[in-house]
Design a protein around this nucleic acid. Structure first.
Lengths: 228, 228
DNA sequence: CTTTCTGATAACATGGTTGTGATGATGAGA
DNA sequence: TCTCATCATCACAACCATGTTATCAGAAAG
């Protein structure tokens, strides 16, 4: 998975690239509109994160030219809070979503996932495992050992989220952003309930203890189930 | 572990805070020199990440005033590549290290760990240790030797506070400001009670004597068991 | 069209966590 | 030794986070 980041602030560019790389993306960066267009035109990226205010070619123009060439690479715009008209123009021109500066890393990633999911890019990685639990994304199937788990869509995504963050604490907000989408209208309690459902199904195959509650913080899926 | 980030670029500030929070730090942020100094002066942080170019009070000035008050909180400077003379002045004034913009997240974190290690705050893998007591911030876990301690959120934060100030006296007010927040509505006595809780759990693993009372002053966590 | 399944919420149960006030110990200084 | 301030300890009450169940609307399946 490869992302192009076009942003004239060198510090911000560097750090946004790092963030994506931390998520397992390969990244390219451009500090000017012209360099950005050069990269974009290659059509080798799965996502473009694009600042609107750029030296050289405008971000808006890049989107227009991309769509004119009928390259429908997903584009997420970065924009200042007060540049509403540019934003609207950008979305009209065919951008998929936007994030206003200053943005939280979690939001950028959430929108990224949302866009990629909408475009059908995501969800075809290799198998995910954690202890005896195994997930096969290509067929959306889950197993404990060899026994199949009959998971609903949400349960599956929840488990996927946990396996992606094996042995790491995940807060309920993170889970919610990731599984329900940060702009979802559902309540946070849904997370609890689905953790419960998931636990029950895991427990029925003897893997219930893998999903631990860290009270006051969140949940953690532990690969090898150990002490308390 | 609590870090103060002072940076006038709102986007960068937001994102740097996110990065630290991802590593298990609590963060505070300031966009101006004056706000930065206000926070810094509270002396509740374990690290300050400080942009040199700031509106209001200069970053350089903040370092100077900090050291003048003999607060030796570790400071990492953020600086443009070409501002060499400022940088030198900053280090002279008592900053511990610097990172030039644009910087990689990994570099910032590496230097953070290096600085904190040099100051004796953390151990090798970002762990906090004091004698047999060990804290793993990334998973919020605490151990005495290999035995896990089952700590509540407050107990954990309290222990973290002590380990950050190993072999140093911490007053109850400092503890309170740091763990409860200076604007908390709770009473100061809560500190005593939680020290007690913590002691009991430490004692159950034979590490009860590490947390000493300095009558009339505060408490002190001693790394290597007692001399007197 | 009916039945079944899924997603979501509300309501309630429960137990852990937090903070307070009372009381008992302990040390420091007079 | 006495007294006072400080700290330790305990028990309890209030609160909050989470677990659990029941229920309902809507989608999907039959």
């Amino acid at each position: 998975m490869r992302v192009l980041v076009v942003e004239d602030d060198a510090s911000l560019l560097r750090i946004v690239r790092d963030v994506f790389e931390g998520e397992g993306f390969a990244t390219d960066g451009a500090e000017t509109g012209d360099a950005g267009w050069y990269w974009a035109e290659q059509a080798v990226h799965d996502l473009i994160v694009l600042d609107l205010m750029l030296p050289g070619m405008n971000g808006l123009e890049i989107v227009r030219k991309l769509r004119a060439k009928s390259l429908d690479i997903p584009v997420i715009l970065l924009t200042a809070k007060d540049a509403v008209e540019d934003l609207v123009a950008g979305l009209d021109a065919g951008a998929d979503d936007y994030v206003t500066k200053p943005f939280a890393v979690s939001e950028l990633l959430a929108r990224t996932r949302a866009v990629l999911r909408r475009k059908g890019t995501i969800g075809q990685e290799g198998e995910l495992t954690g202890g005896p639990v195994r997930l096969v994304p290509s067929v959306r199937a889950a197993f404990v050992g060899d026994a199949p788990l009959n998971l609903t869509v949400k349960e599956y995504e929840l488990l996927e989220c946990f396996l992606c963050n094996k042995d790491r604490i995940v807060t309920r907000d993170q889970i919610f952003d990731r599984v329900w989408g940060f702009d979802s209208s559902s309540g946070l309690t849904a997370v609890d309930v689905y953790v419960h459902h998931l636990r029950k199904k895991l427990a029925s195959q003897g893997a219930g203890s893998a999903l631990r509650t860290i009270r006051g913080v969140g949940y953690m899926f532990t690969g090898d189930s150990d002490v308390r």
